[in-house]
Nucleic acid binder design. Structure first.
Lengths: 142, 142
DNA sequence: TTCAAATAATATCTATACTTACTTTTATGG
DNA sequence: CCATAAAAGTAAGTATAGATATTATTTGAA
C-alpha cells in the first residue's frame, strides 16, 4: 500500500512537474503563460470565433474555469471577446494580433519542452507512455 | 502539433480524471477527503509526530500548500498539531482517534479506485504505465 | 560567543479547477 | 403562441498549488 506506486499519486506528481517545466520555459522566453492559457490559445488559433463553451469542451474543462482563463487572456490583450450575432448568450473568442504573435513565438517552445516533462525516458518509452495515456483517456471521454 | 498527443496535455487530463474519480468514490462512502488530504494522512499515519515540512517533502509539495491542507484536516478533527519540544519552529502532526478511524475506512476505498484512474488498460498495461511514470519521476526527484 | 545564515511555519497573492446557483437568451413541445 | 426546458456565461465558495515575504527559532561560522 505504498502511495508512490499508485497511478493517482504518480499522475499528480507528473502534473506538478509538467506545470513547473512549462513555467520555467516561459520565464526563459520572458512570457507569462500558463499551460491552460496556452491550450486555450491553441484552440482559439485553430478555430477563430469559437465560443467559450466549445473551448472548454475542446480541452476538457468546465465553463467556469475557462471563463477565468479567458478573462486573463483578455486582460493581457491576447484575445478579444465579442457577443455572437446568432446567439447572444455566447461570446466569440479570437486571437488579437498581439496574441497571434505571442502564440507563434510560444508554440515551438511548448513543442520543445515536452521532452522535459517525461525526463529520463527513451523515445520509445515516451511513445509508449503517450499510447497508454491516450488509451486510458479514450475510455474516459467516450 | 496536436495538443492531444503531447505528454503535458495528457497528464493534465489524467490528473483531472484522477481527482474526479477520487471525489466520486469519497462521496459514495459519505466522506469529504481530497487526494492531497488523503496523501497527507497516509504519511502521518505511517510516521506519527512528523512535522509539516517533512510531510510536504514526503508527498512532493511546498510547505505553504501543506499548511493549508493541514489546517483543513485539523478543522475536520482528523489530526492534531503540537509544537515540537526539540525545535519550537516545527509543528508535530498526528492522527486523532477519529482521524485513524476515517483513514482505516478510506484506505481500502483508495486502493480500489486506482483501477478507475487508468480505465480500459489491462493489468500489464497499467503496470507498464506505473513503471514509466516512476522512471520519469526518479529523474525529476533526484 | 555572537551574529549571520538557514529553517519551520505562516501570510499574501495569483491561477487553476470544480460545484452550485443565477441571469440571460434560445429552443422546443403542446 | 407560450410555458418550460436547455444552454452560455457569470458569480460565489472551496481547495489545491506555487511564489514571495515575514516571523520565530535554531544552527553554524568567524
Amino acid at each position: 500500500m505504498d502511495l508512490h506506486k499508485k497511478p493517482g499519486h504518480l499522475i499528480r506528481r507528473l502534473n506538478q512537474n509538467s506545470t513547473a517545466v512549462f513555467s520555467n520555459h516561459m520565464q526563459q522566453v520572458g512570457l507569462d503563460l500558463t499551460p491552460v492559457q496556452f491550450a486555450a490559445m491553441d484552440v482559439i488559433a485553430r478555430i477563430p470565433g469559437i465560443d467559450q463553451a466549445k473551448v472548454a469542451a475542446e480541452i476538457g474543462y468546465d465553463r467556469a474555469t475557462i471563463g477565468g482563463v479567458v478573462d486573463r487572456l483578455e486582460q493581457k490583450g491576447y484575445i478579444e471577446r465579442t457577443v455572437c450575432k446568432h446567439d447572444r448568450r455566447a461570446r466569440e473568442v479570437r486571437l488579437t494580433e498581439k496574441g497571434s504573435e505571442v502564440f507563434d513565438q510560444v508554440a515551438p517552445v511548448v513543442q520543445a519542452l515536452q521532452a522535459d516533462i517525461l525526463p529520463g525516458l527513451s523515445l520509445a518509452e515516451r511513445d509508449k507512455f503517450i499510447e497508454l495515456a491516450s488509451k486510458a483517456l479514450a475510455h474516459i471521454d467516450g
